[in-house]
Design a protein around this nucleic acid. Structure first.
Lengths: 160, 160
DNA sequence: TATTGTTATACTCTATAACTATA
DNA sequence: TATAGTTATAGAGTATAACAATA
C-alpha cells in the first residue's frame, strides 16, 4: 500500500492539485481518513498473521470476558449476528477460541480463548497500544489523550 | 483537557456486562465505533436517496474541482482505481456526473457534475455539515473544533 | 411466542492481477 | 516502457430474511 500521503491540498503524481473544500471539516470524512492511517499501522504490525482488526478486537474482548456470550459480543461491538457467526468460525478454525454451550441455556454459545489464543493476544497486545499508534503517527501524549476522550464521548455517550 | 472516560462497562440488552478493557483506549477501535455513530446520522439524512457516504464525498470533491481526473480523485480519497471505476459508473448512471476525455491526454477521464448532480449536492450539503452531526451526537462546539483539528492532524500530517 | 444463533443471499468496499489504449 | 483506466476475480464487512433449536 504505497499511496501518497494526503494533505490539505494534495499533489498527486500528475501534479494535479485537488481541493477537498468543506470535506476537510467533515467529521465522517476525517474519521475515515484517520482510520485508514491507523489501520496501516495495524497491518504493519500484524503483517504475516492472518488476523484482522475486527478479529483482534474480538479476541481481546473475549480475553477480558471469558465465557462471554456470542450475542453479547455482537451487540457491544456493533457486529451483526450473522457476521459474528462467520467471524467466530474463522477464529475457531484458527484454534484461537473455543465455543461451549452453557447447560442453563442451550441456545447460547459461550466463547473462551484457547491456550494458543491467549498466547497470541499476549504476544500482540503491545503492538496494539494506542500510544504506539498515536506517537508514530505524529500526535503528542496530550493530543492523544484529548482525542481518545472526544472519540469515546462521540462513540458511547448516551443521546437519551 | 483529560476527560473522564465514560462508562467503562457496557450493559447489553440482556443485562450482560461486557468489559471492553484496554480496547477503550484503542485509537483504531474508538475511531471505528465513532464512525458508526456518525454514519448513522448520515443515513438518517440521506434516507430515501441511494447515495452512500463515499459517493457523496466524491460528488462534493468533484463539485469543488470541476474536471478533476478520475485517478487524482482516487489517490486523494484513498479509493482504489478499480473501485473508482465502478463508483463513477454508478454516479454516471444516476445522471449525477459526466465523464469527458481531454484531448491533451486521451487516456484520462475528467469528471464534472451534471445539473442534477449540482442540485443534489446543493440540496444535501447542509445536512452533511459537521456542526449538525457533532451537536446532535453530544459534542460542544469547542469539543468539535478540537476533535476536527486532531483528526485532521492524524489523517494528513506528514510523517517525513 | 420470543430468543439465540445459523444459513442463505446480496451488495459494498477492498485488493490484486491481467488487460487496453494511449503516451 | 510507463501511465490511465478497465475488467475480472476474490475476500471481508454489512444487511436482511428465513430458519432450527430452545426458552
Amino acid at each position: 500500500m504505497a499511496e501518497p500521503l494526503a494533505k490539505p491540498r494534495i499533489v498527486a503524481s500528475d501534479e494535479t492539485e485537488v481541493d477537498l473544500g468543506d470535506m476537510e471539516r467533515s467529521l465522517g470524512f476525517l474519521l475515515r481518513m484517520a482510520q485508514v492511517r491507523v489501520y496501516e499501522q495495524f497491518f504493519r504490525h500484524f503483517d504475516g498473521t492472518a488476523v484482522k482488526p475486527g478479529e483482534f478486537t474480538v479476541l481481546r474482548v473475549i480475553a477480558e470476558n471469558p465465557g462471554v456470550r456470542q450475542g453479547s459480543l455482537a451487540r457491544v461491538l456493533n457486529i451483526k449476528p450473522a457476521h459474528m457467526t462467520k467471524l467466530v468460525h474463522r477464529l475457531v478454525q484458527s484454534d484461537l477460541i473455543e465455543r461451549a454451550t452453557p447447560p442453563e441455556d442451550r441456545r447460547a454459545v459461550e466463547l473462551r480463548l484457547t491456550a494458543k489464543g491467549s498466547e497470541f493476544v499476549a504476544q500482540h497486545r503491545p503492538d496494539f497500544e494506542t500510544v504506539h499508534n498515536a506517537e508514530r503517527i505524529g500526535l503528542t501524549r496530550t493530543e492523544e489523550r484529548q482525542l481518545l476522550a472526544l472519540l469515546h464521548k462521540l462513540a458511547f455517550k448516551d443521546l437519551t
